[in-house]
């Protein structure tokens, strides 16, 4: 559960993050080698944008202190569900190129469904498998885009061919 108070902290955090991003861009730009011979170099816009970020960050911090925040009455958030979805995406990223699109995205499908309270694991798996298999077929055979087969399966499939040659 998130109350008005922690949202106020979040608001201050937003201001601080915007401020920090501005300072960071200014620092990075100052470290980059300067380019000669240009009327306006590649550093001007980064400096302008970082100045804008710093100003907006300060304004947001001021708002957080004076109490102009969103959802002043508090906003309930289910942190577990958010973490579950975020982790599901990481699992997919890690497995995508080894196991391939279908298994990796089926796992993502199941994890997200679980985060939204689904308890029908088998049904989720079947639906996820159907959806990812259908998209794999459509994209790889219909639209000529390459969703990964997965290096594990590629090796398995490649071996009999090698043996034949």
């Amino acid at each position: 559960m998130t109350t008005g108070r922690s949202l106020k902290i979040g608001e201050a955090g937003l201001g601080a993050a915007v401020l920090a991003l501005g300072a960071f861009i200014a620092f990075e730009t100052s470290q980059a080698p300067g380019a000669a011979n240009a009327v306006v170099g590649p550093a001007l816009f980064p400096y302008l944008i970082s100045a804008g970020l710093i100003l907006v960050g300060l304004a947001l911090l001021r708002e957080a202190v004076t109490g102009h925040i969103a959802h002043a009455q508090g906003l309930e958030l289910d942190g577990t569900a958010v973490v579950l979805v975020a982790v599901g995406l990481i699992i997919q990223m890690l497995l995508l190129e080894t196991l391939g699109w279908i298994p990796a995205s089926t796992i993502l499908f199941m994890v997200v469904a679980r985060a939204f309270g689904s308890r029908r694991i088998v049904m989720d798996a079947i639906l996820g498998l159907a959806l990812t298999a259908a998209s794999f077929g459509l994209f790889n055979y219909g639209l000529d885009l390459n969703l990964p087969v997965g290096s594990v399966f590629e090796e398995l499939m490649a071996e009999p061919d090698d043996a034949a040659e």
């Binding site: 990223m93 995508l96 995205s105 994209f139 390459n146 969703l147």
Partner: peptide, 24 residues
Amino acid sequence: PRPWLYAGILVFATLGAYTLNNNV
């Protein structure tokens, strides 16, 4: 059902992002 809707949205969102350049 919402669990399947959002699970499906994420599958297609990652599909769209991945197929742009085929990299993780």
